[in-house]
Design a protein around this nucleic acid. Sequence first.
DNA 1: CGGCATCCTTTTTGATACTG
DNA 2: CAGTATCAAAAAGGATGCCG
Lengths: 134, 134
Amino acid sequence: MAEDGTLTRVTHTDVREPTCELREILDRVGDKWSMLVLHLLAAGPRRYSELHRAIDGISPRMLTLTLRSLERDGLVSRSVTPTSPPRVDYTLTAVGETLQPPVHALIEWAQVHRDYVSKSREHYDIAERGGQAL
Amino acid sequence: MAEDGTLTRVTHTDVREPTCELREILDRVGDKWSMLVLHLLAAGPRRYSELHRAIDGISPRMLTLTLRSLERDGLVSRSVTPTSPPRVDYTLTAVGETLQPPVHALIEWAQVHRDYVSKSREHYDIAERGGQAL
DNA sequence: CGGCATCCTTTTTGATACTG
DNA sequence: CAGTATCAAAAAGGATGCCG
């Protein structure tokens, strides 16, 4: 995510293939939790604690960072209700909703091909080496 | 990519939401280069050096790791032609091809919404703090 | 050419404790 | 409840050099 600054990596003007743009989105959606959060929010607004419980392995820190990042990119909106115990709801923005189809496509792919991938891994690990998991 | 081994993260059997599966695919496709390689291979087989040049910022190490990982998962196949200078071609497998639609969907989303995301970030950084990029 | 091994730096993520 | 701050571990990535 270090756009420029120290290294400017010349950019070769060789952008026949959208490598740069691709990297940007992959960085956006390819972190450990973003897609998961996006997916959960697809079902409607959720509170911070709901997300926290739903995701199970996430630390408050990462949940907050993920949500802030999504908010910064305009994909999620945060609304605070200053009641006695504060209440914060996160909702997909209109643009955030448009990310649903791609996200969903990926999730479906995963469900359909999970077994295949597992088998492939086993086969590869047994065959090529002695179990030298890459 | 460290599947299991030391940590086994208990799995809580709380899989109402497909968090676990999702994490698996995201890890598969969400690294820095996999999708990029997958995308390039969509246009047909490529040699190692072609991929290396096409991707531009990748180190030989990462290209190899990425390709091995994709091969291990059965998404890419590697064929060696033992000519004078050895020649190695990488091709999408049938299942690798099925990953194209989701990948493509994501790429398109990115192209369409890049400006929106940029604007959102600027706005967020200027407004919320004093430029405290998350 | 293709690619592994080694060493090192940068980024990411996690655990925890504490606050409005 | 909804975070933030701090500390530390772990992963990912990069630079090199050597080899078949």
